[in-house]
Amino acid sequence: MSVDGRSADQPPLTPGLESAGFVRLITRADGDALAASGIIARSLAERGTPFQVAVRRTVSQRTARMQAPDVGDDELLIAVGAVDAEVPRVDAPDRPATLAALELARDLETTPDPMLALAGLVAAGVEPGAGESEWVLESAIDRDLVERRPGIAIPTAAPVDGLAYSTRLRAPWSGDREATADALGAVGVDPETTSLEPDLRQTVGSVVALDVVGAKAANERAADTVAQTLNPYATPAGPFETVGGYADVLEATARIEPGTGAALAMGHDAHEPALAAWRRYGRRAHEALSSASTGRYDGLFVVEIDDGPVEAVARIAAAYRSPEPTTLVVGPEEAALVAHEELSASTVERIARDLASEGDVEYDVGRRRGYLRFEPALDESTIIACARESV
């Protein structure tokens, strides 16, 4: 696959990559960054260059790994995510890391996997084929690697399983397999089936969309958001059923089983453990949101949870529940921010700096999102107050 989007006479994005004796990739914990690291790692493997991939949740953790004393003179360090160190970075606030990784693959004259690339782009919030990603989708279609079909973007062939644990949806039955089976059973879907005729796929898509939009707490963005999961790009030869489902698994594993996620992105046989992690991630996220308490402020929607993956809850709440442009989820020792339009790195840094007076705080930033890790003694009201002042 040719890697377009940059003229052939432009200099390499990462000088020294072609001649490096060993490459360390230190990546942030999200689906876009995981896909980007996988694309680069596969390119290095194709060329026979030794490498290591390490996933770290916060800026300080990635920085510490970059500055570790065991880094050799012939090694090249590459960051996929924000770091406080002078090293090459494969990401930008306004552009998915996956696109930059594809350009690195071009520099190395290797052939990246377009299904992994499309999944990374979807994880970054980019519709397949939109903007700079048009050539990626066209290449995948030309090679018969993806095809559009009726239904919903899920990772499994079994619709009940795929819909119950998806974090790209929020319906009254989300997170509950039995309730999902009941909802689909009403339109004739066998709870154990792994194959649906096109007409029934279309029916399932319509039922899901109606349940999502018709939910009592659904926000105005719910219809547009669920529409992005309809008529997905299927991946007949891929590790998961659809591009969107692949993206969902990358997001889940990046957060709770980064070793499994990295192995998956690098092309190793990690399908079953990745799906197990995804199911656990989705179930916990939906359960946490169902039992959460919420508050609304000018420009900020606050969700307080007792347990669960804060970033998944924030993403689901922002897409399907929040009436405000920014959503904050606060849990024990962690918090996450998701913005509908844009959330600058400086905003997250300012919140972390303000909270630092109350104890040790670590943070991370991504496209339209932020993450905070803090000491258990830090009061939730303090976090909320700092966020209200900053967003």
Rank of each mutant, 00 (worst) to 15 (best):
V23E: 01
P376M: 00
G366E: 10
G282D: 11
L264K: 08
D354R: 15
V303Q: 05
G38H: 06
D248A: 15
A54D: 15
T180L: 01
N219E: 01
V187P: 02
V348A: 14
A158P: 06
A117P: 12
A179N: 01
L137D: 07
E192I: 04
P236F: 14
R148Q: 14
D306Y: 02
T98P: 06
H286C: 08
A237S: 15
A181V: 06
A45W: 00
I154A: 04
L17W: 00
A263R: 15
P273R: 09
A335R: 07
R143H: 13
A265Q: 05
R368P: 06
P15K: 15
T14I: 15
G259T: 12
E341P: 00
S60E: 14
A29M: 11
C386D: 13
V160C: 02
L264A: 09
S7P: 03
E333R: 14
E362F: 03
G267H: 10
S357L: 07
A97L: 07
P69D: 10
E333T: 13
D269V: 08
I316M: 13
S290K: 14
A218N: 11
R106Q: 04
Y165T: 10
E341N: 10
D70T: 05
R6E: 05
L145F: 07
A314N: 03
G188P: 08
T260I: 15
P15W: 15
A318F: 01
L99K: 02
P69L: 02
G72N: 02
A345I: 05
I141Q: 14
R143W: 08
D4H: 13
V313R: 09
